[in-house]
Nucleic acid binder design. Structure first.
Lengths: 372, 372
DNA sequence: TTGAAAGCGGTACCAC
DNA sequence: GTGGTACCGCTTTCAA
C-alpha cells in the first residue's frame, strides 16, 4: 500500500498549473459570482483533467457548515421508532460534529407532528426526516419546506403525491405477499383466513392487504379471505372483533395481523383453545411476542427493519444535501421473516427483560401442525 | 435548531480553562510521552467534564494519516464477493480520502490468499479484511499480523482459534435451522430429506448441517434426514450424487443445498420429474436461481447478505483502529429468506440480464404443493 | 515537562 | 475580475 507519492490534486495545484490564484479557482468550482466565464471554463477543464477531488475534511473544518437535520418521529411503538432513531444516529456518527441531527418526538403517529414541523423549519433545519401519520395534514407543510429548499424524507410510511425527496418503507405490498405465501405453504387444508389491520385509509395498511390478497389468490386456491378487521390500533376493539371472527368462522386456519396490535388478537385466539389449528403471522417484533414465537403460537412475524430504514433515510438525505445526488423516489427495504429458529438473531437490540414477559403458558404447541 | 451558541468544546477551550497550552492538552489526550502525570490527569478530567469530542475533520486534515486497509477476497462466486466488496466500499466512502481501502483478489477461496496476505502486510496495511478459505493455512499469518498490531477481520467464514479481531458471518447454524423450519412447515407427509453441502470439514458447512438437524428433529417428527452429500463445490459430483439420491429414495420430500452449488442439484431434480413433490431450499441468490424461485421450483433461498457483511466488517475494523473500540468476538448477520413473493426486492443489486437465464421451462409448478 | 508556532486544504472576505 | 490572506481545530515540531 505504498503511500501515494503524487498526492491528490488540490485547489492549490490547479491554481499553480494555470497561473491563477486559489481564490479564482474556488470561484470557478463553486460557480460563485464575479468571475470571467473564460477563466471559469479553463479552471473547470483543468480540474477535470487533473482529477480534482475536494477534501471534505478541509471543507467542513473551515466552513463550519453544520448540516442541520431535524428528525420528527413519534414515541409510540417505542421498539420500532427507537430503533429507527438509532439507525439514523448510527449513520450520522461517522460524519461527526459537522452534521447535527436533532430529534423531536411527539406522542403518537399523527398527533402533534404538524406543530413540530413548523418549529423545526423555523429553527433553520436544512433537511428533515418524518413519519407522516396523516399525509393530508402534512402535505402543505412538505410543500412549504420544498419551497424553502428543505428536503423532506419520509420513513416507515409515505406521503404520496407530495414534494418529499423520497420515502423509505418496508415495502408493504411485499410485506403482505410474503405472509400470504407463508400461510399458503403452511396450511394444507381448505379453510378461511382472517386479517386484522389498522385502517384501510392508511396507504401502508391497504398495500399490505393487497399484497396478501394477490399472494393467497395465486398460491392458496383452497383458502379464502374472510373478514378484514380494522382495529384502528385499538386493543379492545381488536380483541372483541377477533372473538367475533373466531365464533363466526369455524374453519378459520390463519390470521394475518398487519400492524403491531397483535397481542389482543393472540389473546383471543388463545382463549378459543384453537391455537393449534390456526396459524398466526404478526408484524414487528417486540418483547411480548418473543415467547409466543418461541412456543410456536406465532408462526412468524414480519420485521420491518427500523434500523435499516433509519440508516437509509439519513444516507439519502445526506447524499442529496452534500453531494447533490437525488435518490430514487421510493426506497424499499426487504422485511425480515422472523420465526422461532432465527428469532435469537433479532434480540440483540431489544430490552434485556425480554424473556420475562407472559406467554400465556409455557407448553409449546409445536406438535399441532395445521392439516398435518 | 438554534445554531449552538456555546460551540462544542475543543482542545483550545480545555487549554484555556486549565491555563495550559494546547500542546499539553494534546499530549495528555493521546497519552504521548513527556508529560507530568498530574497535568495529564487534570486535563483528562477536564476533557471529561467539558464533554470534549475531537473534531475528526481537523484531525484528518492535519495528520494526513491515511488509514490503509487491505481487503483480500476471492473472485469466485462473484455475485457474493462483489457485493461484499460493495458493502465495504459503501461503508468507507463517508470517510473519504483519509481512509484508503485497497482490494486484492485471488481466483477462489483458499487459492493464493496466503501470498497476497504477506504482500499486503509488507506494503504497510494497517488493517485487513479476509475470507479465510483454509483457516489452518491462514493461522500463522493472522498471528504474524497480530504481532505487528495489524488487526484482521474475517468475513463470510471464520478462522476460529486465531487472533483475528472478529468475524462476520451469516450465522450458519441459524441458516440451517431456518431451512429446517421452513421445510418442516411446508412438508406435511412423512418422508426423507436430503442435504447437499460442500465439505463437512469446513466449519460453516458443518454448522449449517447442525442447525438443520436440530430444527428438523424438533419440528419434523415424521421427517428423517437421509444422505448428506459432500459435493466439494464440484458441479458434476453434485449432479451425479443427487441423481443417485433420487433413485435410492422414493420418499424424498425435500432437499437443502447449503452452498451456492445448487444448479446441478436442481437439474437432477427437474430431470426426475418429481419437482412437484420435492421442496428445494438453496443458498445465496444469483441470476440462475431467479426464474426457478419465481416458478416455484425453488421454494426459497437463503440470502447471506454480503452487502451487510461488508459494511459490518469495515465498521468493526474502523472503530477498532480509530476509536479503540473492540468488537464482540463474533458478529452474526441474520440471513434473509427469499421466496417468490419477496424476490423482487433483492434483484436491484443483481446484473440486469437476470431474466434471460434458462429456467428449465416456463410452466409454473405452483399447484403441486407437497402433501396437499 | 511545557509553550509557541507552522501548517493541513479549503472558504470567506478583504483590497486591488 | 482577480489576488492575497486570515482563519477552522488539530497534529507536529522545535525551542524554552
Amino acid at each position: 500500500m505504498a503511500r501515494d507519492a503524487n498526492k491528490p490534486t488540490g485547489i492549490k495545484e490547479i491554481a499553480k498549473a494555470l497561473g491563477v490564484s486559489i481564490g479564482t479557482v474556488d470561484r470557478a468550482l463553486h460557480s460563485r459570482p464575479g468571475i470571467n466565464p473564460m477563466t471559469r471554463a479553463k479552471v473547470l477543464k483543468m480540474a477535470q483533467t487533473m482529477g480534482y477531488q475536494p477534501n471534505l475534511a478541509a471543507r467542513f473544518l473551515k466552513s463550519q457548515r453544520q448540516l442541520a437535520i431535524s428528525v420528527l418521529l413519534p414515541v409510540e411503538i417505542a421498539c420500532f421508532f427507537d430503533a429507527l432513531r438509532d439507525g439514523i444516529r448510527e449513520a450520522a456518527t461517522p460524519f461527526g460534529p459537522p452534521v447535527h441531527v436533532e430529534f423531536r418526538s411527539y406522542p403518537r403517529l399523527g398527533e402533534g407532528d404538524v406543530e413540530f414541523f413548523e418549529e423545526a423549519l423555523n429553527d433553520g433545519a436544512q433537511g428533515m426526516i418524518i413519519a407522516p401519520g396523516e399525509p393530508t395534514a402534512m402535505k402543505p407543510l412538505i410543500r412549504k419546506a420544498a419551497r424553502r429548499n428543505v428536503p423532506v424524507v419520509c420513513v416507515a410510511t409515505d406521503a404520496p403525491k407530495t414534494e418529499r425527496l423520497t420515502a423509505i418503507t418496508a415495502c408493504p405490498y411485499t410485506n403482505g405477499a410474503i405472509v400470504g405465501e407463508l400461510l399458503c405453504r403452511t396450511i394444507h387444508v381448505p379453510g378461511t383466513l382472517g386479517v386484522v389491520t389498522g385502517s384501510l385509509a392508511t396507504e401502508d395498511h391497504a398495500d399490505k392487504l393487497e399484497g396478501f390478497r394477490a399472494s393467497v389468490q395465486t398460491l392458496g386456491p383452497r383458502l379464502r379471505i374472510a373478514t378484514v378487521i380494522q382495529a384502528h390500533d385499538d386493543e379492545s376493539l381488536a380483541y372483541s372483533e377477533t372473538k367475533a371472527l373466531l365464533a363466526a368462522t369455524p374453519d378459520l386456519r390463519g390470521i394475518y395481523v398487519s400492524t403491531a396490535n397483535s397481542p389482543p388478537v393472540l389473546q383471543a385466539v388463545e382463549e378459543s383453545n384453537r391455537a393449534g389449528s390456526i396459524a398466526v403471522i404478526t408484524t414487528d417484533l417486540f418483547p411480548a411476542l418473543v415467547p409466543l414465537i418461541r412456543s410456536g403460537r406465532v408462526l412468524a412475524t414480519v420485521h420491518q427493519r427500523p434500523l435499516a430504514q433509519g440508516r437509509l433515510a439519513f444516507r439519502a438525505l445526506y447524499r442529496f444535501l452534500m453531494e447533490g445526488i437525488c435518490p430514487v423516489p421510493k426506497i424499499r427495504v426487504a422485511p425480515h421473516i422472523v420465526m422461532s429458529s432465527n428469532l435469537d438473531l433479532f434480540l440483540d437490540r431489544m430490552p434485556l427483560d425480554v424473556e420475562e414477559q407472559a406467554g400465556f403458558g409455557v407448553e409449546p404447541i409445536w406438535s399441532s401442525i395445521i392439516g398435518g
